[in-house]
């Protein structure tokens, strides 16, 4: 598992202002953990600590028992944890899309035949097969974000850290990436940390952690968070219109389950 033990972190030159304070959490294989919180609350910092890109100022981060601060084991951590950055431009390295996706697993020493299979499967999973020969930095932002997701998938890491992976996607793309994330954790057994502002994405997690000014303000079920107006406000999450519609229907007396976030479930609940 990924384990944060009382982790503190301050960026160099930030005048001692800490970005994270005493954060303790775990992500188990097969578990989908969402991380929410207002802008600047420390979510991306937490994500970068989870894959060893940053090292804690205090406390410790371990992945399957390997300390991310252990210089000798940097590559062990990198091969265990795949990361999708908030800004896809931060991770595009290849000159064509399929090279970019092959870069991570290639570095891990994956054999050519398997590499080919992984790249094709990952591009197909995000709907980019048709763009495999394009230059990644000359794509639209949503297309780039899907390249970044494919790159992390191709590494087939035990754990995946996804920092707002749907922020640039269209509604159809968002839904399919949420399905993909769900499957990675619940069908394929990856441990997944999903940073998100979006109630729809958060609702599908097993557990959600809310950061507030670098501290854990909530660690519990999505249903518990989504029915707690005060905590939602502290987490900077706005209920989407479908959630408002479900609330309004409940107020009128209809039986719509809490956490209904899609049209099919809502209509199914109204007219079973």
């Amino acid at each position: 598992m990924i384990r944060f033990e009382s982790v503190g972190f301050a960026y160099p030159g930030s005048g001692g202002r800490s970005a994270l304070t005493r954060v303790t959490l775990t992500v188990e294989p097969g578990e989908l953990v969402a991380v929410a919180g207002a802008n600047g609350s420390g979510k991306s910092t937490l994500a970068r600590l989870a894959d060893g890109l940053l090292r804690p100022t205090s406390g410790s981060v371990t992945v399957d028992g390997v300390d991310t601060a252990d210089d000798e084991r940097v590559w062990d951590v990198r091969s265990l944890v795949g990361m999708v950055f908030q800004d896809p431009d931060d991770q595009i390295v290849g000159t064509i899309v399929e090279e970019d996706v092959a870069f991570g697993p290639g570095n891990l020493g994956v054999a050519p035949a398997e590499l080919r299979e992984r790249v094709d499967a990952s591009l197909a999973a995000v709907g980019l097969s048709a763009l495999s020969r394009r230059e990644p930095h000359l794509l639209s932002e949503g297309q780039k974000q899907r390249v970044a997701i494919a790159g992390a998938l191709a590494m087939r890491p035990a754990y995946l850290v996804l920092d707002e992976p749907t922020s640039m996607l269209d509604p159809g793309g968002r839904r399919s990436v949420l399905d993909l994330i769900d499957g990675l954790a619940h069908r394929e057994g990856h441990g997944v940390l999903h940073v998100s502002h979006d109630a729809t994405g958060i609702a599908r997690a097993d557990r959600v952690i809310v950061l507030e000014s670098g501290c854990v303000a909530y660690d519990g079920t999505p249903a518990g968070l989504l029915s707690d107006q005060a905590m939602l406000a502290r987490a900077g999450i706005a209920l989407p219109e479908i959630g408002v519609l479900a609330d309004a229907l409940r107020a009128l007396g209809a039986r719509v389950p809490e956490g209904t976030m899609d049209a099919e479930s809502l209509v199914g609940a109204l007219w079973p």
Partner: peptide, 11 residues
């Protein structure tokens, strides 16, 4: 793809 609450009405 319309917003989910609009899709619910279309459905």
């Amino acid at each position: 793809v319309p917003p989910e609450h609009v899709r619910a009405q279309l459905l």
